[in-house]
């Protein structure tokens, strides 16, 4: 592997600064539905970042992150609706609940080998809509109806529209998560996570607590995906059980794989993909979206195991080597 030299790193940094500047200026440039879509892309990118931590860095498979997303979304919605919470504590509590869920579900599951974890999380994803509809929690979750959230999150002193405020909020959380995870994977903790992925036995012999590291990976991943769910509630002002079905989990997995498992930028690319493919595909047929996802998943596992980001990076390295 070639490490990027300092000049290309500087170019990369410039690009990131430019991208951030563009995003910050975006509400002045675009409005309405397109801004909503970009907000959704960022929100999904956050959810995909969460799953990417498990799949790309942890080397484990979760088919149930759609369910974690659902928990985040519902906790925030119920918090704001039934308990009249301000959006900020609602979002924070949603994140913490998902973190706790990650620990509770991960603690028994992570001792399982790859397939077993996939099975357990697959079942979780399938069961989640039923659980959300259940009679015993209907007073809060509204059963099949779901929950509408009618409070405006914009503080009085800010002269922003709801859409623009939520956009900046999501952007801020995504940036924090983005740089936070980037820093994490350069830290001791991050190296431990990668060591566990590469070789558990070797990692254990180097003094890494494998179980605890896996658990931390899973919990952190649930935190990010759960926060994304909470932000989703702020964006759409409405949650319903059937929008968090198995397909949601599969969608997140598609995004991880297409963007590039184990890459920092991958989730962004993947989120753009899953946000815009349905728009294009549904003009062809109701089934086309899934067919395209299936095709891309196969292309990724066959030819581009590191996704679009890994592929482009490889291309750049080869180009530079030729010069």
């Amino acid at each position: 592997m070639q490490t990027p030299n300092s000049s290309s790193r500087r170019i990369g940094a410039l690009l990131i600064v430019a991208a951030i500047a563009l995003l910050v200026a975006l509400p002045m440039l675009v409005k309405g539905f397109f801004l909503f879509q970009i907000t959704m892309v960022l929100c999904m990118a956050l959810a995909v970042m969460g799953l990417n931590i498990v799949v790309g860095y942890g080397g484990q498979l979760s088919l149930g992150h759609g369910a974690v997303f659902a928990i985040g979304a519902y906790v925030a919605a119920v918090g704001m609706d039934s308990f009249a919470l301000h959006w900020l504590p609602a979002v924070v509590i949603a994140g913490l609940v998902c973190l706790a869920f990650g620990v509770l579900f991960g603690w028994p599951s992570l001792r399982l080998k790859g397939h077993h974890l996939a099975l357990a999380t697959f079942a979780l994803a399938l069961a989640m809509p039923q659980i959300l509809k259940h009679r015993s929690i209907e007073t809060w979750t509204g059963g099949v109806q779901g929950v509408m959230v009618f409070n405006s999150p914009v503080p009085d002193w800010l002269p922003l529209s709801r859409e623009v405020f939520v956009f900046y909020l999501v952007l801020a959380v995504v940036l924090i998560a983005f740089f936070g995870t980037a820093a994490l994977f350069r830290s001791r903790m991050g190296r431990a996570i990668i060591a566990v992925k590469e070789n558990q036995i070797a990692a254990a012999s180097m003094g890494v607590n494998v179980t605890r590291t896996k658990l931390a990976t899973f919990a952190l991943s649930c935190l990010l995906t759960g926060l994304a769910g909470a932000l989703y509630t702020l964006i759409t002002e409405y949650v319903s059980p059937d929008s968090f079905d198995l397909m949601k989990s599969i969608l997140l997995l598609v995004a991880v794989m297409v963007g590039g498992a184990g890459t920092i930028l991958g989730p962004l690319v993947g989120a753009v993909f899953i946000q815009f493919v349905p728009n294009l595909a549904e003009q062809v047929s109701q089934s086309a979206t899934s067919a395209i996802y299936a095709g891309f998943l196969l292309i990724m596992v066959f030819f581009m195991p590191t996704g679009v980001v890994g592929f482009v990076r490889g291309l750049l390295i080869r180009l530079r080597a030729r010069r």
Partner: peptide
């Protein structure tokens, strides 16, 4: 001989692929 993760991703591709084919 791939890892469980890769294999399951391939299966999920088949899953949604065949599912959409049925519907289509």
């Amino acid at each position: 001989s791939a890892s469980a993760t890769t294999f399951v991703v391939a299966c999920i591709a088949l899953f949604i692929g065949i599912n959409s084919l049925s519907g289509w």
